[in-house]
């Protein structure tokens, strides 16, 4: 490559790099500095070492938020994956109006978190909600999400699955469509039952796509904020807080910037651990494909 062409690249790369540096990289590094200092608005900071981390890691409120987040990630993301896998197989098995159905199941992707919360709050409203009415008519227990923490968590899980299912479904369905059909032909000729060809052909070949989609969803479920904030505000009595809501409360409600920064860095580290797994899988797939 000629040096003149090298220099032509710089202005082309600059906008992306500048945006990422100024909005994400430098602020994130500054959060490290914040996390080792104690400060609130208008006061000069003083160095406190690991104190903020110790405070966060020994705070029962943080343990609760972390536990809620982990439960949501594990339960909601895996449930979502199971449904998406089932949907992909259903769509692949030959359906009438497949194109229209596909667009229909994509619809929740367009819905904002705010409107999603408005919808599901009404559907499950204990007094007037249609789903609650249906449950009462069937003599089933109601979801008392406004004051029963475990019920609120179920609500949050339903909402996140509803909002993110289209994404997971598209990834898995695209991967399923990419599988060569002669493999299934061969399996059929060898006398494999549909269940056998699912276990021996579909699952092993879809495995990498499932892992990539799962890691991606772990990373995004781990930062969950709006759904929880708008649905319960972390209440009742901070019982349904997730890590991002805990961070928000520390920073913007209690002005405890040090502990909030420590929480933020804990989030970055966990996200980066998950991300390194994600990037490792991507690179291996690219290498195998190429």
């Amino acid at each position: 490559m000629k040096t003149s062409r090298m220099w032509q690249m710089v202005p082309l790369l600059a906008p992306v790099q500048l945006l990422l540096l100024s909005v994400i990289v430098i602020p994130s590094v500054y959060v490290i500095w914040l996390s080792f200092h104690t400060s609130t608005f208008g006061q000069s900071a003083s160095f406190v070492g690991w104190e903020n981390y110790v405070r966060v890691l020994t705070d029962p409120g943080f343990h609760n938020a972390l536990w809620n987040t982990v439960v949501l990630v594990v339960v909601a993301v895996h449930l979502e994956m199971l449904i998406a896998l089932g949907m992909a197989l259903l769509f692949n098995s030959g359906l009438w109006f497949r194109r229209i159905l596909f667009v229909a199941v994509l619809a929740p992707y367009a819905v904002s978190e705010v409107v999603g919360v408005a919808m599901w709050r009404f559907l499950f409203d204990p007094d007037v909600g249609p789903v609650s009415n249906l449950l009462t008519a069937l003599h089933l227990p109601l979801l008392e999400w406004s004051y029963e923490p475990s019920h609120a968590m179920i609500m949050i899980a339903i909402l996140t699955i509803w909002m993110h299912l289209p994404f997971t479904f598209v990834i898995i369905y695209a991967a399923r469509l990419a599988l060569p059909s002669d493999l299934y032909e061969a399996a059929r000729i060898d006398g494999a039952t549909p269940l056998q060809s699912f276990r021996r052909v579909t699952m092993p070949l879809l495995g990498p796509a499932i892992l990539v989609a799962l890691l991606f969803r772990y990373i995004f479920a781990f930062r969950l904020f709006s759904e929880v904030w708008l649905l319960t505000g972390g209440g009742p009595a901070r019982t349904t807080e997730v890590v991002a809501v805990y961070l928000y409360q520390e920073a913007f409600t209690f002005s405890a910037f040090g502990p909030a920064a420590a929480t933020a860095w804990i989030m970055v580290i966990v996200s980066m651990l998950l991300a390194s797994g994600y990037i490792y899988l991507l690179r291996r797939q690219v290498r195998n494909a190429g």
Partner: peptide, 24 residues
């Protein structure tokens, strides 16, 4: 390497950067 770093940077949770960006 810089392309990989782009992907990694995008995975940092947005709420993390609100903290230092808010006063700035």
């Amino acid at each position: 390497a810089s392309l990989l770093s782009l992907i990694a940077i995008r995975l940092i949770p947005p709420i993390v950067v609100t903290l230092p960006l808010f006063p700035i």
